[in-house]
Amino acid sequence: MTEHPAVTQLDALAGDLLDQARTTSAKRTARTLVTGSSLRATLIALAEGSELAEHDAPAAATLQVVTGRVQLYTSEHEQTVENGQLAVIPPLRHGLKALADSVVLLTVALR
């Protein structure tokens, strides 16, 4: 298992990841901050207009927008989540689109 620091300075890391995302062909990058037997937390940077295509949802997860604005969507619903907001990810296939340069913290319950 990879060791992760007990405390992460999100704003500084968010800026670094966003700079990286702007230069990649996919226009996104991520870093896992916490892993364990029951929880995973991943910081994801998305340049404006980039997207995580629809994918299956974990049993329980939240998405916190650290900076920017994203659209969380399913086949039946879409929701804009902005800087400082936390959303529950529905237990359905879903996708995520960056409406502005954005960094989100994805927290997933693994059990």
Rank of each mutant, 00 (worst) to 15 (best):
L18R: 03
L96G: 00
S75C: 10
V88Y: 14
V81P: 05
M1A: 14
I44G: 10
H4Q: 11
A60G: 13
T107M: 11
E54R: 07
L13C: 02
P5N: 00
T23Y: 00
Q64W: 05
I44E: 15
L105D: 06
A57F: 12
L72I: 09
L10K: 04
A47I: 02
G84A: 04
V65T: 15
T29D: 07
R40I: 07
V70L: 10
A26N: 01
A87I: 13
N83E: 14
T42L: 08
H77R: 13
G68I: 02
S50D: 00
A45E: 03
T2S: 15
H55Q: 15
L105C: 04
T74C: 10
G36S: 02
T29M: 07
V7C: 04
A12G: 03
R28N: 05
Q20K: 05
Q79G: 11
L92W: 14
I89V: 09
V65N: 14
H77M: 06
D19T: 05
H77C: 15
H4F: 15
A30K: 08
V81I: 01
E54P: 15
T23V: 01
R28F: 15
Q71T: 06
V70C: 11
L110T: 02
G95Y: 03
Y73L: 09
A45W: 02
A59K: 04
V104H: 10
S50N: 01
V66A: 06
A57R: 07
T32M: 14
T42Y: 08
L18Q: 03
A47C: 08
A30R: 11
S75A: 08
V65E: 13
L17H: 01
V7W: 05
S50M: 01
L63S: 08
T8V: 13
R40T: 01
S38R: 15
V7A: 03
E51F: 09
G36I: 04
A59L: 07
Y73C: 08
E76I: 09
A21N: 08
G95C: 05
T8G: 04
Q71P: 13
L43M: 08
R93P: 05
L86C: 03
A30D: 00
H94N: 06
H77T: 13
V34T: 10
Q85I: 00
E48N: 09
E3P: 15
L106K: 07
A26T: 08
G95K: 12
T35G: 09
S102K: 07
S75P: 13
L63A: 00
L72H: 04
G49E: 00
R28A: 15
D16Y: 09
Q71F: 03
A30E: 02
Q64Y: 07
R28V: 15
A61R: 13
K27C: 09
V7I: 09
H94R: 09
S37R: 12
G49V: 13
G68L: 00
K27A: 05
L105K: 03
I44M: 10
T2V: 14
D101E: 05
H55T: 12
L10Q: 04
T80L: 06
D16C: 08
T74Q: 11
E82G: 13
G15P: 02
R31D: 11
K97F: 12
Q64D: 10
V66M: 00
L39S: 10
A100W: 10
T32E: 11
L99D: 07
R111D: 14
R111F: 12
